[in-house]
Simulated scan of single mutants.
Amino acid sequence: MEQGAARERATEGPSVRFGDPAPGPYAPGGGAGPGAGSARVPEQARGEHTHGEHTHGEHTHGESPLAGDGPRTVRRHSVRGQVLDALRTALVAGELRPGEVYSAPALGERFGVSATPVREAMQRLAVEGAVEVVPNRGFRVVVRTARELTELAEVRALIEVPVMLRLARTVPAARWAALRPFAEATGAAAARGDRAHYAETDRAFHREVLALAGNEQLLVIADDLHRRSQWPLLSAPVLRHADLVADAAEHSALLDALVARDLPVVESLVREHFTGANG
Rank of each mutant, 00 (worst) to 15 (best):
A242D: 02
D262M: 13
Q44W: 09
V142A: 04
G108D: 02
R180N: 01
L125F: 08
R228S: 05
R137Y: 03
P34M: 07
I159S: 05
E43T: 11
R9W: 07
A236K: 00
A249I: 00
N215E: 13
P117W: 08
L149V: 06
G33W: 14
G24E: 05
M1D: 07
R80L: 09
R119Q: 14
V245L: 03
V92C: 10
R119E: 12
S252E: 10
A260N: 13
A222G: 03
R76I: 00
A253T: 14
N136H: 13
A191C: 01
D262S: 12
A242E: 05
V259M: 14
E43G: 06
M164K: 02
A146N: 13
R88W: 01
G276T: 02
P65E: 06
L244I: 01
Q44L: 06
L234I: 06
L212M: 08
D223C: 10
P232G: 03
G47W: 10
R207H: 09
L219C: 05
E109A: 14
Q230T: 09
A93V: 00
H77I: 05
S235G: 11
R140P: 05
V161E: 14
A236G: 00
R261S: 12
H77W: 13
H59K: 13
G112L: 10
P264V: 08
A185G: 05
E154T: 15
L179W: 08
L239H: 12
V142N: 02
G138Q: 07
G70L: 05
V171W: 10
Q82M: 10
P42Y: 06
Q123A: 11
V163T: 15
V238A: 09
G31A: 12
A6M: 04
V118K: 07
L158A: 10
A246M: 01
S114L: 07
A157G: 14
T116Q: 13
H251W: 08
V92W: 03
R76P: 05
A183M: 04
G279A: 11
L87C: 11
L234T: 03
T170R: 15
D224Q: 11
S15A: 14
A153E: 08
T11G: 14
A153L: 14
G70T: 02
A93E: 02
P34I: 12
A32H: 09
A211L: 13
V143Y: 00
A222C: 11
P232N: 08
G37S: 15
P181G: 08
V163Q: 09
D69R: 15
L125P: 10
E120G: 12
R203I: 07
A183S: 12
A246Y: 00
A22S: 07
M122W: 03
S64G: 15
E95K: 00
E53A: 14
L219I: 10
S38V: 11
L244E: 01
Y26R: 15
L91E: 02
A168M: 10
L167H: 05
A246W: 02
H241C: 11
L87Y: 05
L255G: 04
V113H: 11
M164E: 03
E128R: 03
L84A: 12
V209W: 00
F111A: 06
L225Q: 04
V141M: 01
D194V: 07
R76L: 03
L233M: 05
R124T: 15
R80H: 11
Y26G: 02
R46G: 00
G99V: 08
R261L: 04
E58P: 00
Y102A: 14
H59W: 15
W176D: 08
R80S: 04
